[in-house]
Design a protein around this nucleic acid. Structure first.
Lengths: 264, 264
DNA sequence: AGCTAGTGTGTAACATGTTAGATGTTGGAG
DNA sequence: CTCCAACATCTAACATGTTACACACTAGCT
């Protein structure tokens, strides 16, 4: 038997009903239904099939490191805990495997993907490429309304930093990057960026409580927002690149502290 | 019943055995197995589970527009044609839905994703961002060996262009972009770029036979390769951006000629 | 003792039966 | 004639039984 902790029950709730409330806010849906052939349903909003729900729950648990890298995922157990059959769990995991968030060893076991330094470096590269490109467009498109919302976010960050609310600060940080993607004007860019960022997000989440950079981060965010506000694409891209690149050092710190989370 | 052609059988082969030969070359595998806990299998190379095979077959069929945008995919029919049960087909389609290549209407039907202008524009933006970033690194890293392989590819392109072999030219074009991603030195970047490019690839494949730009494309590729060879990152990025941006016009041409392939 | 073959166990993979929901159709009421 | 409701039909979604495989362990051979 694989010696990954057997007894501890996975920390997400016991049946799908528990999730219906939080569900609507979380899912990343790619399906913008409507089919033209005859009279297909005009406005389908959210599918909420069981497999989609399971997908969302597992994905969230992985990204947030509630399920740690390397941890076993036993399909049957998950199915029982969520009160569904094995089928929707399998389909959800299939999708997660496609995104590189789980590793499947056929006929043997399924595990939360471990962290691989070279994959994370590539993800970092992709992130810089996407977000500097996005912020250039954001700087060009920037309106007073957008600038105001960015400043609001920054104010909230200051408050969170003052009371050392790491979780809140983290969420505001993510929201800021999302807003910049949205401000680029490209539909769906935020979702793509978020997906490519998922490996990095796992690292950041694990680092959250070692994090002592809040005040520096705040300064970097100020620079970013200021560059957007003054509609200076080159400066904006530069500040963003500097900001994102700070991750690298923290990554190596994490590998020293928690080597078991890493692969190879 | 949905009035999408019933009788015409899907143009891919009838059972998995037919594919085993071509299979090994095509699949994009994210699983780089090995688990450390006890003595997990050291060197697993390719899983070749049925669902992975089905995934690869369907994906290829969609990307290559063998299955046209908007076309119905009937799970049971696919299962029969491939000689497998419905389960692996479902799991494969689940994954394809996650990548935005199919649209699922729960309890109603599954369709090859139609083309959405705004999604394609975003994909185009992402492509420019990723590939200009990649080519900068490629230009910096460029060695004589890499340059030689790029020139070989270009020679082959010239030959293909001379005899008007569109398919071959298309494949060499893709290979060139892959080589540039690889030359960036980032592990897995090629796969990420390929995935983000999939919507665009579908368009390009459909445009293949309207394509009259081969000679211009050739000139652009020459410029790109020359910039890499002389290790000029800025110039390389510029030539790449110019090159990729040429897609936009062709896209609008396609929408005029084949509006039924597009959504909304 | 070290190595190999055979056996046991746990897991995912696969097949198939059943249910639910979306759409289309038809018939009857107004 | 129009509208609505009941029903028929089609498909995917879900549940569950079965199979195949990977690994671990053990015993027997060298």
């Amino acid at each position: 038997m694989l010696d990954v902790g057997e007894g501890e029950s996975i920390a997400f709730a016991k049946d799908l009903n528990c999730f219906n409330a939080s569900w609507n806010s979380g899912g990343v849906s790619h399906l913008q239904p409507r089919f033209s052939s005859k009279n297909y349903k005009e406005q389908k909003v959210v599918s909420a099939t069981r497999k989609d729900q399971v997908y969302g729950i597992l994905r969230q648990a992985i990204i947030s490191s509630q399920l740690a890298p390397g941890e076993a995922i036993r399909k049957e157990l998950v199915a029982n805990q969520l009160g569904v059959s094995r089928t929707p769990v399998s389909e959800a995991i299939s999708r997660l495997a496609g995104e590189g968030l789980v590793e499947i060893y056929p006929q043997a076991g399924t595990f939360v993907a471990r962290l691989w330094l070279d994959k994370i470096e590539t993800a970092q590269f992709v992130r810089v490429a996407l977000e500097t490109a996005a912020i250039r467009r954001a700087a060009i498109n920037s309106t007073e309304e957008i600038a105001a919302r960015l400043r609001d976010n920054l104010d909230d960050q200051r408050k969170a930093a003052e009371i050392l609310d790491f979780e809140q600060f983290y969420e505001l940080d993510e929201a800021l990057h999302d807003m910049i993607c949205d401000a680029s004007g490209f539909v769906g860019l935020r979702e793509i960026a978020a997906k490519e960022r998922s490996q990095i997000d796992r690292v950041r989440r694990l680092l959250l409580h070692y994090e002592t950079r809040m005040s520096e981060t705040l300064i970097e965010h100020e620079a970013i927002i200021s560059a957007i506000t003054m509609r200076n694409p080159d400066l904006a891209a530069k500040t963003m690149e500097d900001h994102i690149s700070k991750m690298g050092i923290m990554l190596l710190q994490l590998r020293e502290k928690r080597p078991e989370l890493f692969g190879s």
